[in-house]
Simulated scan of single mutants.
Amino acid sequence: MASEALNASAAAWKAAFEKYRDLSLSLNQAPAGEADAIERAIAEQEDLLLGLEAPSIAAVLQKLEILFETDLDKPDRDGAEKRLIIDDLARLHDEAELLVG
C-alpha cells in the first residue's frame, strides 16, 4: 500500500514537472502574442507543483528552486544564502544517490 502511494506520488510529480519544464522551454521560443498565456500556464503549473507532496529530495530541491527562482541570481546576502541552501541539498542528494546506487 505505502509503495503504491509513493509510486503514485512520484508519477504525479514527474508528469507535473515535465509539463512545467516543457512550458518553460516553450516560453523562450514563443511569439510575443503567446508569451502571456504560457507565463500564466507556468504559474499554474508552479502552484500545482508546490501543492504536490514531494516524492524525493530531488523534488524538494526543485520546489525550492521554483520558490527561490528570482532570488538565486541576486548578488545580495539573501541570494547567496538561498544558493547555499540549494547547493547543500543538491550535495546531500548526490551523496545519498552514491550510497544507494
Results as ranks from 00 to 15, higher is better:
A10F: 12
F68M: 07
D71W: 03
Y20A: 04
L50A: 10
V100S: 12
I86H: 00
A54M: 04
L64S: 09
I85C: 06
K74Y: 09
L61D: 04
L67V: 11
S3A: 11
A2Q: 12
G101P: 03
L52N: 10
L61N: 07
D73P: 00
L99H: 14
R21Y: 13
E34S: 14
E4F: 04
L84C: 03
K82H: 06
L27K: 07
G33V: 06
P55H: 08
G51K: 09
E34M: 12
A10M: 12
M1H: 10
E95V: 05
E53D: 04
E34L: 11
I66W: 12
L50W: 01
E46M: 06
Q45V: 06
L25V: 08
L6V: 10
E69Y: 15
R77C: 01
A5D: 12
P31W: 05
R83H: 08
L48H: 09
L84P: 01
D73Y: 13
D36L: 05
D88H: 10
P31F: 05
N28T: 05
F17I: 03
E53R: 15
R77V: 00
R83Q: 12
A30G: 08
A90P: 01
D88R: 13
K14Y: 10
I86R: 00
L61H: 08
A90L: 02
A11S: 15
G101E: 15
L99F: 15
T70H: 14
A54E: 06
L98I: 15
I57K: 00
R40L: 10
L6P: 00
L84G: 02
N7V: 13
A80L: 10
A96G: 07
A11D: 14
A30L: 06
S24E: 13
